[in-house]
Deep mutational scan, measured.
Amino acid sequence: MTEYKLVVVGAGGVGKSALTIQLIQNHFVDEYDPTIEDSYRKQVVIDGETCLLDILDTAGQEEYSAMRDQYMRTGEGFLCVFAINNTKSFEDIHHYREQIKRVKDSEDVPMVLVGNKCDLPSRTVDTKQAQDLARSYGIPFIETSAKTRQGVDDAFYTLVREIRKHKEKMSKDGKKKKKKSKTKCVIM
Rank of each mutant, 00 (worst) to 15 (best):
Y96E: 04
R68H: 07
V112W: 01
N86W: 00
Q70W: 12
F90R: 09
L113H: 02
D69E: 13
V81R: 00
R73T: 12
S89C: 12
R123A: 13
T74H: 12
M67Q: 12
E98D: 07
G77H: 01
Y71H: 14
D105L: 05
F78R: 00
L79P: 02
K117Y: 14
E76Y: 14
Y71F: 08
A83L: 02
V81S: 06
N116K: 00
I84D: 15
G115K: 01
E76P: 02
F78E: 00
V81G: 03
V114Q: 00
S65D: 11
S65G: 09
A66H: 11
T124E: 12
S89E: 09
F78T: 02
R68N: 03
T124N: 11
M72D: 03
P110Y: 01
Q70D: 13
Q70T: 08
V109E: 01
A83P: 15
M72Y: 13
H95F: 06
C80N: 02
R68Y: 05
T74G: 12
G77A: 11
R102D: 05
D105H: 05
M111C: 05
E63Y: 05
F78W: 04
K88G: 12
G75T: 13
I84H: 15
T124V: 09
K101A: 08
G75A: 15
D105N: 12
Y71G: 15
V112R: 00
D92I: 03
E98W: 00
K88T: 11
N116R: 00
I84Q: 15
L79A: 04
G77M: 09
K104G: 06
M67F: 06
N116E: 06
L120R: 06
D69C: 02
V112A: 01
A83H: 13
N86L: 01
V114F: 07
C80V: 14
R123N: 13
Y64G: 13
R123P: 09
K88N: 11
V81C: 12
V109L: 04
D108E: 10
H95C: 08
C80I: 14
F90Y: 07
K104C: 14
Y71D: 12
L120Y: 15
T74S: 12
V125N: 11
R97F: 15
E107K: 06
L113G: 01
D69L: 01
A66M: 08
G115R: 02
S122C: 08
M72W: 06
D92F: 05
Q99K: 07
D126S: 10
Y64N: 09
I100H: 01
Q70G: 07
D92G: 04
K117D: 13
A83I: 01
M72N: 06
E107P: 06
T124Y: 09
L79R: 00
F78I: 13
I93P: 01
Y71W: 07
E63F: 02
T124A: 12
E63D: 12
V81I: 13
E107I: 12
L79H: 01
K117Q: 13
V112G: 00
F90Q: 06
Y64W: 10
E107W: 11
M67Y: 06
V103P: 03
V81M: 14
L120A: 11
M111P: 00
L113D: 00
Y96K: 02
V109T: 04
F78N: 00
L79G: 00
E63K: 05
N86E: 12
E107F: 13
T74V: 08
S65C: 05
R97D: 02
F82W: 07
P121E: 12
S106G: 13
G115L: 09
Q70S: 11
Q99G: 04
I93G: 01
S65E: 08
F90L: 13
A83T: 09
T124W: 06
C118E: 08
S122Y: 07
F82Q: 03
V109N: 01
T124C: 10
E63I: 03
D126R: 04
F78L: 06
R73W: 05
S106T: 11
K117N: 14
F90P: 04
V112M: 06
F90S: 08
E76N: 15
V125M: 10
I100A: 03
S65W: 04
D69G: 05
D126A: 07
E107H: 09
S122D: 12
M72L: 07
S106K: 09
C118I: 10
R68L: 03
V81T: 07
V114G: 01
H95S: 08
K88R: 11
E107L: 12
Q99D: 03
M72T: 09
C80E: 01
V114I: 13
K101V: 05
P121V: 10
R123V: 10
D105K: 11
V109I: 10
Q70I: 07
Y96V: 14
G77F: 03
A66I: 11
L113R: 01
R68F: 03
Y71I: 13
P121G: 13
F82K: 01
C80A: 03
R68A: 08
S106R: 10
C80K: 01
F82S: 13
S122G: 13
S122A: 10
S106Y: 11
E76H: 15
R97Q: 08
D108L: 05
R97M: 15
S65T: 08
F78S: 01
I93F: 13
R68Q: 05
G115W: 05
A83C: 05
R102K: 10
P110F: 03
N116D: 10
E63N: 04
M72E: 07
D105A: 11
A83N: 15
P110V: 03
M72K: 03
E63R: 03
M111T: 03
K104L: 11
T74R: 08
E63W: 01
T74C: 09
S89R: 02
H95K: 14
T74W: 07
L113I: 11
D126P: 05
E98T: 04
E76R: 09
D92W: 08
P110I: 02
F90E: 09
C118D: 10
D119Y: 04
N116L: 15
D119E: 09
V109K: 03
Y71N: 14
R102C: 05
S106V: 09
H95W: 08
E91H: 05
G77E: 00
C118L: 07
P121H: 10
E107S: 11
K101I: 07
M67V: 07
I100M: 05
E63L: 02
A83Y: 03
R68P: 02
I100F: 05
L120C: 11
G77Y: 02
R102I: 08
Y96T: 04
T74L: 09
I84P: 15
G75F: 07
R123E: 13
R102Q: 08
G77C: 05
G77Q: 00
M111N: 00
Y64S: 11
A83G: 14
D119S: 10
S65A: 07
Y64P: 13
M67G: 05
D126C: 07
C118Y: 06
I100T: 03
F82R: 01
A66S: 11
M72I: 13
N86T: 03
V114N: 00
I84W: 13
E107N: 09
D108V: 06
H95T: 08
K104V: 09
K101S: 09
G115T: 04
I100D: 00
M67C: 05
R123M: 11
Y96C: 10
H94L: 14
V109Y: 08
V112I: 12
T124H: 10
I100L: 10
I84M: 15
L113K: 00
Q99C: 05
G75E: 02
R97K: 12
T74K: 10
L79S: 00
G115D: 02
K104I: 10
P110E: 02
I93L: 10
P121Q: 12
P110D: 01
G77L: 13
P110S: 03
S89A: 13
C118V: 09
Q70H: 14
I93W: 04
S122E: 12
E76I: 15
D108H: 09
M67P: 04
R123S: 13
M111R: 00
A66G: 08
E76C: 15
V112P: 00
L79W: 02
F82Y: 11
L79M: 08
H94P: 01
D69W: 01
K104P: 03
D69K: 04
H95L: 07
D119F: 03
I100R: 01
K101E: 09
G75S: 15
F82N: 03
M72H: 06
R68G: 06
I100P: 01
C80D: 01
V114W: 01
I100E: 00
V109F: 14
Y71T: 14
R123L: 08
L79T: 00
D92R: 05
